Simulated assay, not measured.
Amino acid sequence: MKKVFSLVFLSTLLLVGCSDNNSLTESHVVEAESTFSTEYSPNPQVPDDRTLMEIGQTVSDEKGEATLEAISQIGDTFEFGLIRLTIKEMKQIHLRPDYSLIDYFHVLTHEEEFDFVKVFVEVENTSTEKVHFAPIAKMKTNLGEEFDWHEDIYLEELNGELLGKEVKQGNIGFIVHSPDTLEWILLDTSDIFDKDEKKIFNSQEIKLSF
């Protein structure tokens, strides 16, 4: 089941989530529990890049043409508060969107083709209680660019409500304007809020390298 925060609550969550960070610097091996999962489905705006595993590979479909510029298979799992967050992979992709989708991307860029960085994540509520959480509230890169959740091109509803034992997985991606290859990104999660919208755990800062 997927639900979305109201803009008012999500904005508050993200603003609070950027302060008082507890930095995560190592992955944690955790025991699997009984959960229910929201399976990932291909995005309606961005080509499915799951077959892109080597730099220079290209995939084309009705949504456009995507070429892999950089990839990092991460696979690190972080557990904090009631959240278990797995960063599965990070990619830099050059996208030439189909003409029918130009208007969709024009909100963020006027270029007809561009690079973007994307992170594939899995987020799990380890408790039986409903929580509110955003796996990537803000992101910055070594190229000096900064993004927040408003600029996510995937819009796969990963931010927001997680029911007890619920697992969500999907992509979060941001258009980068520098022509250079990324070396690393620094992402901030939101704080974790309980079912009554009360903060129960601080936001986390995670650095990912190509």
Rank of each mutant, 00 (worst) to 15 (best):
D115Y: 15
Q57N: 05
G173N: 02
K168V: 03
P179Q: 09
E156D: 10
F147Y: 15
I87R: 10
D103C: 02
S23D: 10
A66Y: 12
S100K: 09
E33P: 00
L208H: 07
N125S: 07
D115F: 14
L163R: 06
V176A: 02
F36M: 01
L24N: 04
F193W: 12
L24Q: 14
R50M: 13
M1N: 02
L13F: 06
Q57E: 14
L186P: 00
N125R: 05
F116E: 06
A137Y: 04
F120H: 07
F105V: 00
E145Y: 09
A66F: 10
W149C: 01
G81F: 12
T12A: 06
N22S: 07
T128F: 10
I136F: 14
T25R: 10
Q204D: 00
F210T: 05
E145T: 12
V117M: 08
I200V: 11
T77M: 07
D103P: 02
G81E: 11
E65T: 15
S190Q: 06
H94G: 03
S11Q: 05
D115N: 14
E156Y: 03
D98K: 11
M139T: 06
L108E: 06
S72H: 14
S41R: 05
F114V: 03
S11H: 09
S72V: 01
I102S: 08
V16P: 00
P44D: 03
T189H: 03
K207L: 05
H94K: 09
L95N: 13
F114Y: 13
I83C: 09
D49N: 07
K138L: 12
K168H: 14
F78M: 04
G144Q: 02
T58D: 05
P42A: 07
S27T: 08
E124F: 07
Q92D: 07
N125W: 12
E166R: 07
T141Y: 11
E124T: 13
Y154H: 09
L10N: 10
Y104I: 00
I172Q: 11
F210W: 13
E26R: 15
D103A: 14
P179T: 03
D152K: 02
S72L: 05
V167T: 08
D61F: 14
N21G: 00
V46M: 13
S72Y: 03
T77V: 11
S203W: 08
L24E: 09
V107L: 11
S6G: 06
V8F: 14
L82E: 12
A32K: 12
F5M: 10
D98M: 02
